[in-house]
Amino acid sequence: MYSGAMEQKHKIHPYKFSLWLGIASILMMFAGLTSAVIVKRNQANWISYDIPQFFWWSSLAIIISSITLVLAAKAFTHRQMKQYRNLMAVTCVLGTAFLVLQSLGFYNMWQQGLTISSTSSVAFLYVLAGMHALHALGGLVALIVLYAKSYSRKQKMYSVLPIQLISLYWHFVGILWIYLLVFLIMIR
C-alpha cells in the first residue's frame, strides 16, 4: 500500500533498516546497564560469586538455535517447506529451552541465597539477564508465530522478509547474551 519503498530500488528494506535501528537502541540500553556495573564494580562492597552452570547450557541452546535458524532460512529460500518447518520447530524448542535454562539458573542462584536483594553484584545479574530474557521472549513469540503461519492454509508464504527480520533479531539476541555472559564472568 505504501509505494514509496518500491519506487526506490536496490536499497535496504525499510523494515530491516528499522530493525537495525531498534537493535542500536537496545544496545544503548544494555550499554547503560553494563556501564553502571563498571561504575559499581569500582566502589566498595562488591561481592564476587560463581555463575551457575545453567547459564553455560542456556548459551549452548541459544547458539544452536541460531544455527538451526540459519538453516531454516536457507531451506525457506530453496522452498523446501518440510525441512523449513522441522528446522523452525527445532529452533522454537531450543529458544524455549534457553528461557527455561535461564529460569533454572535464577532458581539455582536463589537457592544458594544469592537473591536479588542480597548484594548489588548479584542484583545486576538478575537485571541484565532478566532484561535480556524479556527481549528473548519477544523473539521467541515471533518465532512461534512464524512457525505456526507455515501451517496456515489461508496464507501462502512467499516473502523472505519475515524470516530475514526474525533471523536478524534472534541472532542479535543470541550475540547479546554471549556478550552479557562474558561481561558478567569478567566483572564478577
Partner: peptide, 19 residues
C-alpha cells in the same frame, strides 16, 4: 534507552529490595 535502564534499576530499588 539509557533512561529506561536508569528507571528499571530505580524500580528494582523501590520494589525488589536491591541497592
Amino acid at each position: 534507552p539509557v533512561l529506561l535502564s536508569c528507571v528499571v534499576l530505580l524500580f528494582c530499588d523501590r520494589n525488589l529490595g536491591t541497592s
